[in-house]
Amino acid sequence: MTDKKIRVLVAKPGLDGHDRGAKVIARALRDAGMEVIYTGLRQTPEMIAEAALQEDVDVVGLSVLSGAHMALAPRIVELLRANGQADVKIFLGGIIPDEDWARLKEIGVSGVYGPGANTEDIIRDIKAAVAG
């Protein structure tokens, strides 16, 4: 029996046009032994939720630079719940003002990271969250 791999969907919602950060994270998670489903730019919350369902992921990692995180994140949480995937952990990276962090955690986001975040920390947090 193969040991259970952590499956992570890495998505870039919103309209801003580069995904360098998302790709860096995707590779770091791969190097930590995870299976990363990379979906590319300009994903709507609906697209992200559909991919998360089909891929039966443990984690959804979002990279949001546009400042639209307070609109996007709650919507994604809501859609995952509606699909029966309330157990999926959500991690968010990007330029996120301090005052939003608490609110994001409140609605069920497991981790929030700024641009200078250490990938080691993110990996450790993901592993801990999935282990429950």
């Binding site: 791999k5 995707a26 590779r27 998670l29 791969r30 190097d31 930590a32 032994g33 995870m34 299976e35 990363v36 489903i37 990379y38 979906t39 590319g40 994903q43 609906e46 697209m47 559909e50 991919a51």
Partner: peptide, 20 residues
């Protein structure tokens, strides 16, 4: 990856038209 056992699965990027 033969070294870490991890993977980046990127084929979905080209299949976004199939959403919905």
């Amino acid at each position: 990856s033969p070294f870490t056992g991890g993977a980046v699965l990127g084929d979905r990027v080209r299949m976004r038209d199939l959403f919905g």
